[in-house]
Simulated scan of single mutants.
Amino acid sequence: MAALNNIAKFLTPPMPNVSVDYDGFELRYKFLVFRPAYFKNEVYFLGAALLYVIFYFVGKKANERKAHKWFEAHEALYKLQFSKPTHTEGLSQDGNSDFFAFSTGRRALTSLHTTFTLRPRHDLFQTIFHFVRGLVELDYKVYDEVELEFTFREGAAPETVWAVVAKDELKKIRDERWDLTFTKTTDTTALPASLAVMSEFADVTTNLLKPYGAFSLPAVLSLPAIQPYFRSLSLTDQPRTRPSHALSPSERTRRLILTLALPPTSDSAATLPLVTAAFQLVDVIAGAGRLPGLAAALRPETKTKLRKMREEVERQIRDEGAREKREEAEEQKAAARKKAQDERLSKLSAAEQKKALDREKKRAMRKTQGKTKMR
C-alpha cells in the first residue's frame, strides 16, 4: 500500500499557488475560477499545437489546389484523347499528398495512369526533415511530381528500353529503375546539353528523335518554357524492379512514362506542349495513319539483338531462381538433420552426449583441415 501511495504522489501534479492576494485577470462562473496568469507553460504548448493544426490544413489545401490546377489545365486535352478521361469526377485522392486519375478509351492504349506525388506540406515534421536533409545531402531534392504512364495494347510497341532524362535526375533514376540498366547513357546534339539519352541501340534513338511531319520530339524538349519541369521520358517493356522469376511476354507490358516536376499553380499549363507531344509520340510508336510504327521502322538486326538480350536476362533470372531454390532445399535438409541429431542426443545420458559432441567437433575439424589443404 505504501508503494502505491508513493506512485500516486509521484504522478500527481503539484497544486497551483492560488493565493488570495491574486489581483490579475480572472474569469469566474459560480464556483469555477480561471486565472490565466497561473498557466504559463501551457500557453506555449497550446500555441505549438495550434501552429501544427494550421500548418496541416494550409499544407493540405495547397497540395489539393496544386494538383487540381494542373489537371484542370490539361483536362481538355484528356477529353480530346480519351472517351473516358477519368474514372471519377476529377482527381481521386489517397492521403494528403497523393492524387491520381485513370483514363481509358484510346487507340493503341489500354490506359493512362496520371499520378501526383506532392511534398508533404501538411506534415510539419516531414517538411523540416526534408529541408534538413537537403542541407546535408547536396544532391537530395524534393519536388512535386506528376507521372503519366501510358500502357500500350499488346503488339502496339516493340520490346525495347529507351529514355531521355534530365542529367541532374540520372543518379536517382538509375537507383530506382531496374529496366534502365538495359541501356547505355549517351549525349546527342539533337537535344539540349542538359538532357541525356539512355538507349539499348542507336537505331531506336534515331527513329524516336527524327521528325514525323510537323511533330519533332527534340523540338518540344528544346522549348525553354518546359525544360525546368521535364524530368524523364521513357519507353520500356521491362518492370521497374528486377523480377524474382522470368516473365512471359504477356507479363512484360509496354509503357511510355513521362515524369514532370509540377509547375507553380500560376503557370499550370506550362507543361501542356510536352503532354501533347507524349500523345503524338504514342502514335509514332504504335503507328497511326501513314506512320509505320516503331517496331516496323527498326532494322531486323536490331530486333534480333533486342530479343537475344531479353533471352539472356531471362536465363540469368531463371538460373538465380534455381540456385536460390537449391540453397533453400539444402538449408531445409541441414535443419532437418540438426533436429534429428538433437532429438537423438536428448535421449542419451550426459556422458554419452559429451562423447557424441566430441566426435562431432573432431569431424568438423577434419573437414576444415581438408578444405584448407585443398586451397
Rank of each mutant, 00 (worst) to 15 (best):
T12D: 11
H245E: 13
P36F: 05
T205C: 03
R375F: 09
L124H: 05
F34G: 04
A225I: 06
F10P: 02
E360V: 05
E327L: 13
N207H: 07
F25W: 14
A49F: 13
E311R: 10
V313E: 12
D139Y: 02
S222C: 04
E200P: 00
R307H: 14
T186W: 05
T368E: 15
L298K: 04
K308M: 13
K61E: 14
S349E: 05
Y78N: 04
D358H: 08
A157G: 06
E42S: 12
E352Y: 07
Y22I: 04
V20L: 15
S349D: 10
K303H: 09
E320T: 11
K371D: 10
S234E: 11
E251M: 10
H113K: 14
F82P: 02
A202F: 05
P120L: 07
F182D: 01
I173D: 09
V136A: 09
F230A: 01
F55Y: 14
K141R: 13
A76N: 07
R174I: 05
P36K: 03
K362W: 06
R254C: 07
R106T: 02
F215Q: 01
P249H: 05
F45S: 14
E324R: 15
N6S: 15
T115L: 14
E149S: 11
K184H: 11
V142I: 11
A225K: 09
T189I: 09
I173T: 11
L109D: 00
W70S: 03
E251Y: 08
F116P: 00
F152I: 04
V204W: 00
R242V: 09
D187W: 08
H113Y: 14
P243E: 01
L4K: 12
A269W: 06
Y29P: 05
L291W: 08
T114S: 09
S248R: 14
T110R: 08
K371T: 08
K373N: 08
P16W: 07
E343W: 10
T127M: 14
L80Q: 15
D168Q: 07
L27P: 04
V58F: 08
P292G: 05
L135S: 09
L291Y: 04
A219H: 09
G59W: 00
E327I: 07
S349F: 08
T236P: 06
K338Q: 13
E324C: 08
A334C: 06
A37Q: 11
H245Y: 13
V53Q: 13
T114E: 03
D187T: 15
P263A: 04
D342E: 13
R35N: 03
L294C: 02
Q93D: 06
K210E: 12
R323S: 11
F25L: 15
F34I: 12
L195V: 04
L272P: 01
E360C: 04
D319L: 14
P249Y: 06
T205S: 09
L124K: 03
R254Y: 03
T188C: 06
T372D: 15
T115G: 08
A295N: 11
T160D: 01
A202N: 11
F230D: 00
L233N: 00
Y78K: 04
T181R: 12
F45N: 15
D203N: 06
P85R: 02
A351M: 08
R299S: 12
A219P: 01
I257C: 01
W162I: 02
D237W: 00
K171D: 13
S232G: 05
A3G: 09
Y44I: 15
I7M: 12
V197P: 00
E72H: 10
F45D: 12
E75V: 01
R65C: 12
N5P: 03
L294N: 00
K141N: 10
A166G: 08
V43F: 10
